[in-house]
Amino acid sequence: MARIKKQPKSDETSAWSYEQRVAEVEGIIDRIEAGDLDLEQVFEQFSQAVEYLQECENFLQSRQQQVDLLIETLQDD
């Protein structure tokens, strides 16, 4: 079975993209569902997917805070 190369963490890349992370998670899910990975690789890929999803959640929470602040600023005017 082919070894799956671990993707760099977001702080190791110059341009983080929410859409790219979601696509990577989808790719991981596809590889796991295909059944072509050994058990160790499944756990590694699953762990990577969880990390990516946490990054996405943090990104969305940050943007929601920014939107809330902008709305509050508009309402104060």
Score class of each variant (00 low, 15 high):
residue 45 Q to T: 00
residue 48 Q to R: 15
residue 35 G to K: 05
residue 57 E to S: 13
residue 47 S to N: 04
residue 19 E to G: 12
residue 48 Q to I: 06
residue 44 E to Y: 08
residue 10 S to R: 11
residue 14 S to K: 14
residue 13 T to H: 02
residue 41 Q to S: 12
residue 49 A to V: 00
residue 77 D to E: 15
residue 63 R to D: 07
residue 42 V to Q: 03
residue 68 D to I: 05
residue 14 S to V: 11
residue 36 D to F: 01
residue 40 E to I: 13
residue 16 W to E: 02
residue 14 S to I: 10
residue 40 E to W: 11
residue 59 F to V: 01
residue 59 F to W: 10
residue 21 R to L: 04
residue 51 E to M: 07
residue 28 I to N: 04
residue 14 S to P: 02
residue 6 K to C: 03
residue 30 D to Y: 08
residue 56 C to E: 00
residue 18 Y to Q: 08
residue 58 N to T: 07
residue 10 S to H: 11
residue 2 A to I: 11
residue 39 L to K: 09
residue 5 K to G: 01
residue 74 L to Q: 10
residue 34 A to C: 03
residue 10 S to T: 09
residue 7 Q to E: 12
residue 63 R to F: 04
residue 7 Q to D: 09
residue 66 Q to D: 14
residue 31 R to T: 05
residue 38 D to E: 07
residue 65 Q to S: 11
residue 57 E to A: 13
residue 37 L to R: 01
residue 24 E to I: 04
residue 31 R to Y: 00
residue 45 Q to K: 08
residue 41 Q to T: 07
residue 28 I to W: 00
residue 66 Q to C: 02
residue 46 F to C: 05
residue 44 E to L: 09
residue 74 L to T: 03
residue 14 S to D: 14
residue 8 P to H: 04
residue 50 V to W: 04
residue 4 I to Y: 03
residue 25 V to E: 00
residue 22 V to P: 00
residue 49 A to N: 00
residue 6 K to W: 01
residue 69 L to R: 15
residue 26 E to I: 02
